[in-house]
Design a protein around this nucleic acid. Sequence first.
DNA 1: CTCGCAGCACAACGCCCAGTTGTGCCTCCC
DNA 2: GGGAGGCACAACTGGGCGTTGTGCTGCGAG
Lengths: 329, 329
Amino acid sequence: MGARDRTGLRQVPVRSVGVDLEAVRTFVAVADAGRFREAGAELSLTQQAVSKRIAGLEKDLGARLFTRTARGAQLTVDGRVFLPHARELLRAEERAAASVRPGRRALRVDVIGRGLAPAGLLRDFHRAHPEAQLDVVTHFLDADAAIDAVRAGTIDASFRAVTTPARHLPDGIEAVRVHDEPLQLLTGPAHEFADTRAVTPAALAGHRIWMPGIVTGTEWAAYYDELALAFGLTIDATGPNFGLEPLLDMIADSPALATFVGEGTRFVWPADYDLRRIPVHDPTPAYPHSLIWHGDNPHPQLAALRAYLESAQPGQRDAETWTPKWAQR
Amino acid sequence: MGARDRTGLRQVPVRSVGVDLEAVRTFVAVADAGRFREAGAELSLTQQAVSKRIAGLEKDLGARLFTRTARGAQLTVDGRVFLPHARELLRAEERAAASVRPGRRALRVDVIGRGLAPAGLLRDFHRAHPEAQLDVVTHFLDADAAIDAVRAGTIDASFRAVTTPARHLPDGIEAVRVHDEPLQLLTGPAHEFADTRAVTPAALAGHRIWMPGIVTGTEWAAYYDELALAFGLTIDATGPNFGLEPLLDMIADSPALATFVGEGTRFVWPADYDLRRIPVHDPTPAYPHSLIWHGDNPHPQLAALRAYLESAQPGQRDAETWTPKWAQR
DNA sequence: CTCGCAGCACAACGCCCAGTTGTGCCTCCC
DNA sequence: GGGAGGCACAACTGGGCGTTGTGCTGCGAG
């Protein structure tokens, strides 16, 4: 950076700017009204207070935002550039406040992971209802913890596999199966099944399936336990979960290791390695996602979400689908 | 909204929330550090001040953000949901401040319109350099006003057609042709040329071309004046500019009206009507976009933009291209 | 079990700043 | 030329924010 400043204003020493949101709000009001006094009236402020706020904001930013004329305030070029950022800042404030606003906060939905199928359903829902304020939450260990949170009203809904019979769910808790997600085998290019078009679960017996990070006691542990039992699979769930990267790393290089992924799982991966997704058929193991919510929850977007999921159910399970006993209807 | 509140906190009366950014910054610091005291140290605050700020934020929001334990502060569910919003809020603040920060603000580039080809080039540049802070500006009437702003350092660059010979540009101002954009004829389905694959400029003689909103004295007025003169066209630039919608509305319904659009013009239109874009050939009129900047401008992203435009020049004009005399090299 | 420590909340105090009233100055327009 | 509308400056005041000082609680070590 040169010492000379092409904007004509002297360059201030590096000072992390602390912008005052009230000043920003005032700035937007003045930009809209065109006059300090009128903007002040909207904010229940005197003209002098508005003048001070704007002056303070200009000093904080180090740039002139308005040219003061005898007939009002006109935006400078800096002001015009700043204006959309100011509006975005206020929108971000509104969204932030809406995320925790008691009584009518944004819809808060729990999912297992951000890359898995339920998160995709939520993305689609948000596309269909852009006006809906939505917060996706991922920090509950298992279905029971999520159900507790739903019961307490901490979250509004949860996508989970429900291992409990409906009649044993806590009072008021409702659950509806919304998506049966076919499983696929994920292998590296050197794996025996890398180039086959499909495998059967039975053919996987004896092969090592590695799924680190599965926590005992969770509903997905229950799912994979029963899956392994049903088809004589070797599902290795030991070892700490180092995250997705080391797992894919191992699988990509290994001729023997493979793992299961849901059909709807999206990797956000730089190179995507050279991983193969092999469909599993005859029967197709499917992971049963249910939406869980509280019947008394009056959140309007909750009803919208339920309606959306009901209308947009993609390929459901057929006769060739396998699900655990506790998920069979 | 019911009187009962499922979150367990009493519902406060509707009060437009005014969030304090310093409190939000403190919140993020505490969330990262896990302890009030440690967060305070980073912000040069005492533990008590941090405690007050967090308490104030919680009161403003109406939600508890931390559970205080004997070994530090732990995020509540509300806190975890709020955290990403808080970070985004601070990022938005940073971007807003960066847009006008004197001496090293975001790169500020002027274009004629947000839907036209130069804006598309800027979008592509931003995709290629996501780290670049970029502000697109549209409020200069003509090339001369934009050049003045570039000279003054108010903006860093401008996409314009330059009608002045290079040697007559103001001192220090540089300009490089970056894109010759073929023109197309935009018609409704009832227009005579609606179903032809291409037209020649000469064939348009006598047909009415309507381009309201063209301001006399601008460089695009000069372009269309010379285009009309060269091929005997009737370009009707009278009438106030009511915006794009009424124009497209008229054209869509009219068997006689048409207009010119650049090949790179993107409509952000709900239905897009049933408008046809007819290529114009033999010769193809092309609009000459130049990038204009100040040679002394040290902005690092300006160099990056110039390099990008140089490397990514799409289909340039060929022998079959027509440009005004002042644009011929 | 008990003591000590780490960590947060509450209380009192002082200062700074945001907003108010009062006023002056400028520009545009009649 | 004068009046009106619009913004800035000055003086004042009250509340809020940060500080120091202190109390309370839970956990772990001895």
